[in-house]
Design a protein around this nucleic acid. Structure first.
Lengths: 362, 362
DNA sequence: TTTAGCACTCGTTGTGCCGAAGTGCTAATC
DNA sequence: GATTAGCACTTCGGCACAACGAGTGCTAAA
């Protein structure tokens, strides 16, 4: 049923027009409504024939006999891959984007949240931001701060610059000197290696070096372990959920519920995103999404990387009939900006340089 | 129309029965269906009369002439204040609650998240957790860690034990000694006082003490200021939004959208919660909620306090016909547990001691 | 004071009908 | 051969209408 033939330019024009109008009004588009289109100087009958062929080829679908056509997933895919017109951010939009990012926000957390908010505001879709868990990262540097007699604060600087802190209770009183000692020993023996390699011999060496305060090592290592290897329950945040409801695709309660339920399973989403391409905007249309209740939706996202590691992602979720052009551009712009701000390799995008680089994925 | 008269015991029983059955099935309850109730050995006609009077008094409403009655907001209020039967957490539920809390989680953030999750799981309603912003807290103790030549990490221990960190770029190379110096000076001059009191003279004194590294003070103070006085954009999190959709109250898309939209305005919700009573479970029924789109919903929450300050809150949001008994008990149990864990004055609740202490609020 | 009975109300459900939109196909036209 | 006009056909959505049922209020009897 689906023949893989190159589309004629005319078919492309028609397909593009169909997708565009369907995206904007959500209704099946009929042959007649296309005759008003400037690009297409054809009668409705001709268009009907072309549409029939496009359907034959798999790019269009008909909800029922006497309705217009809507793009199939394959149609959207083709549109995204080949027909997308470049969206140009307006000056106002760029100002909005930048002002959001300029807000004192050196920390990734806050950057992601801000980005999420502005994405929702600009695109009108629900947006998401992800901070994936670090898989047992190693600590670059320790610092031990004595809070009071029996409480220490461990500060851990992790690989990507992330900072974690954790309070640690000590079995007995410790003084500043002991804290400093602990700090030195931790930096000496533990820092720089993944936690799996902190084996018994390593710990014993550390204890030896601690001298009379050896008892601190046990608690400290447990504390470190708990802090950095905690699952961090895959932080996924949604912003603007109410936006979903403006599309009739989600007025079916069961479908909406399914989607929301799926989005609650944050780990799944996060692992999906973590496995994606890091160098482009990923567009997962309909059943390209692994999770079943998302098969009616489209997820557009791009990862944030630092030193080659994925440290997060931002994206947008909405119906398949999505303003791809605008969404992709926005996601791309923001992710580049963030990458730039956190000191990644990519420069922050200039105001005129928007190259979404949207490649297919399925 | 609403006469303030004491209800007869029989009226109470009937009202209670009505609320209970309406809560469980969501439909208007008719006089006949109540005759099967053991507590009420009356004919439907008698019950009808009582119901008519209860409606007269304002406790019940009739969606339309030939439907049963549903509780009015006032009915719910009375139910919550006077008729609520003690819900007894089952052993299994307590296990669930505790296991969630035992998970290594000394940090409030994680505690709140966990609590939220388990609340949703146990009650079946959407739950929320709030971490309000600290209004310009003062730093108890500073620690300065030299990351590399031109980067320092400031660690700030705030009043309630919260730890904040922030990277700070230095204008020129600094060594360990300078970092240590900065730490001492910050602890000496800045620690312990609210940021408003860090005035020019204070800063100058600090700079004087810094000697050749005086230039660090400016950046440091700006950095501190940015970090601790940042609005922290009122952190409100929802868990289990999909749960909302199982109630027919929210199958009306516009209403649902309104509610979700309102919940997106996190600041409003947070400020509402921050202004609430700290020593009991707050129950805001329908129009007792300040925000308009929440007027069809009920919000049950309790604040988490530490040293008398509100440091967070957990709660549940759902339709007015909510399983108040279970929800209130769960929220109370969890909030007490958390208060206990973060070292508040209240002891964590024992397994048999559930005293929700639900007072009216409007 | 309670209850049985009955007329009444009103929402819900199911049915049939009609119009609108849009198609596919055929035959005429360029 | 490609395009177009015309027409019969299909399907959905909305509307009116009737039948039904649940539940009430009221009256009169127990």
């Amino acid at each position: 049923m689906v023949k893989k033939v190159e589309l004629t330019p005319r078919k492309k024009t028609i397909l593009k027009a169909i997708v565009n109008t369907h995206i904007s009004n959500g209704e099946p588009v009929g042959s007649k409504s296309l005759t008003t289109n400037q690009q297409i100087a054809l009668s409705s009958a001709t268009i009907r024939n072309e549409m029939a062929e496009l359907e034959e080829m798999g790019y269009l679908e008909q909800p029922h006999t006497s309705a217009g056509r809507i793009p199939s997933e394959m149609g959207y895919r083709f549109y995204v891959d080949n027909l997308l017109q470049q969206y140009k951010l307006t000056a106002g939009e760029i100002v909005k984007l930048n002002s959001m990012l300029k807000a004192k926000a050196a920390e990734l957390d806050r950057l992601l949240d801000n980005a999420s908010r502005v994405m929702t505001a600009l695109t009108g879709y629900t947006s998401l931001s992800v901070k994936p868990q670090n898989i047992s990262p190693s600590v670059i540097k320790f610092s031990v701060i004595r809070v009071d007699g029996i409480t220490l604060l461990l500060v851990m600087i992790l690989e990507a610059g992330t900072v974690k802190t954790s309070y640690m209770s000590t079995p007995s009183e410790v003084d500043d000197e002991a804290a400093l000692k602990l700090q030195n020993v931790l930096n000496h023996h533990i820092a720089g290696q993944p936690m799996e390699q902190v084996t018994l011999p390593v710990m014993m060496a550390a204890e030896r070096e601690m001298g009379e305060h050896a008892f601190l090592i046990q608690s400290a290592i447990k504390c470190i372990y708990d802090t950095i290897s905690e699952p961090e329950h895959a932080d996924l945040r949604l912003e603007g959920i109410d936006r979903l409801l403006q599309y009739r695709e989600y007025s079916d309660v069961m479908r909406l519920r399914g989607l929301l339920g799926a989005l609650e399973k944050k780990d799944e989403i996060v692992s999906m995103i973590s496995g994606a391409d890091t160098d482009k905007v990923n567009v997962l249309i309909g059943s390209e999404n692994a999770v079943d209740p998302m098969k009616d939706s489209t997820l557009v996202f791009k990862t944030i990387t630092q030193d080659g590691h994925i440290v997060g992602a931002i994206g947008v979720i909405g119906p398949c009939r999505m303003d791809y052009s605008k969404v992709i551009t926005t996601v791309d712009y923001l992710s580049r900006s963030i990458n730039g701000l956190i000191g990644g390799a990519l420069p922050p995008p200039g105001e005129n340089e928007n190259d979404p680089n949207n490649g297919g994925s399925s």
